[in-house]
Computed example of a mutant assay.
Amino acid sequence: MPSSPSRRRTRLAWLLVAGVLLAAAAAALWPRARGFELVEARNALLLIERSDRGTTRMREIHPLTAPAAGVLERIELEAGDRVEAGQILARLRPLVSTPLDARSTAEAQAAAVQAEAALRQVQAQAASAADARRRLEASATRGLVSERDLVAARALDREASAAVEVARAALAQARSRIALVLPDARGRIELPAAVTGVVLRRLLQGEQVVEPGRLLLEIGTPDSLEVVGDFLSQDAVLFKVGAVARIEGWGGASLPARVERIEPLGELKVSALGVEEQRVRVILSLEQIPPALGHGYQVEAFVRVREQADALLLPIEALRREDSGWKVWTLQDGRVRGRSVEVGDSDGRRREILSGLSPGEQVLAFPPPGDLEGLRGYRLD
Rank of each mutant, 00 (worst) to 15 (best):
R53Y: 08
L268I: 07
A138E: 15
R349D: 05
E165I: 08
G143F: 09
V241N: 01
L216C: 02
R246T: 12
W250K: 07
S355E: 12
S128G: 12
R201C: 06
R202P: 04
L232Q: 08
E226R: 07
T98I: 13
Q125M: 09
L354Q: 11
S324Y: 10
G374E: 06
A26P: 00
E342T: 14
L72C: 04
A126M: 05
L354C: 04
I61G: 11
L357Q: 02
R304L: 14
Q173L: 02
A167W: 01
A118C: 05
L293E: 10
A79D: 04
A41T: 01
L182W: 15
S128F: 15
E317A: 13
A153K: 11
A129W: 00
L171F: 04
V299D: 01
A118Y: 04
A163N: 10
L100D: 09
L150C: 04
I262D: 00
G249V: 09
A85T: 13
Q123W: 06
P192C: 13
T141Y: 04
Q308T: 07
A162W: 05
A18F: 12
D223S: 14
E361T: 01
A69H: 09
Q125V: 00
I219D: 06
R93G: 07
D131R: 13
A318I: 04
R351M: 15
R34G: 05
D345C: 01
R34L: 07
R351H: 09
V275E: 15
L29R: 05
L215W: 01
E159Q: 11
R148G: 00
V39M: 02
R8M: 15
R93W: 04
A66L: 06
R246N: 08
I189N: 00
L364D: 00
V303W: 02
A118P: 03
T330S: 13
R135H: 14
F36K: 02
E116W: 07
S340D: 10
E373K: 14
V20W: 13
E73F: 03
A69S: 15
A112T: 07
G348K: 05
P5S: 15
A236L: 07
L357H: 03
P264E: 08
E307S: 10
L354P: 03
Q362M: 09
S161T: 08
L64T: 09
G360S: 02
Q208I: 06
S358L: 14
S271T: 15
E84F: 00
R103A: 11
P94T: 13
V39L: 02
I178N: 06
L312W: 04
A140P: 08
R82A: 06
V83A: 01
V280H: 03
R59Q: 06
L29A: 12
V83S: 00
G370N: 14
A245F: 13
K269F: 09
R158D: 02
V343Q: 03
A253G: 07
V336M: 09
A257M: 10
E342P: 05
E287W: 11
M1R: 12
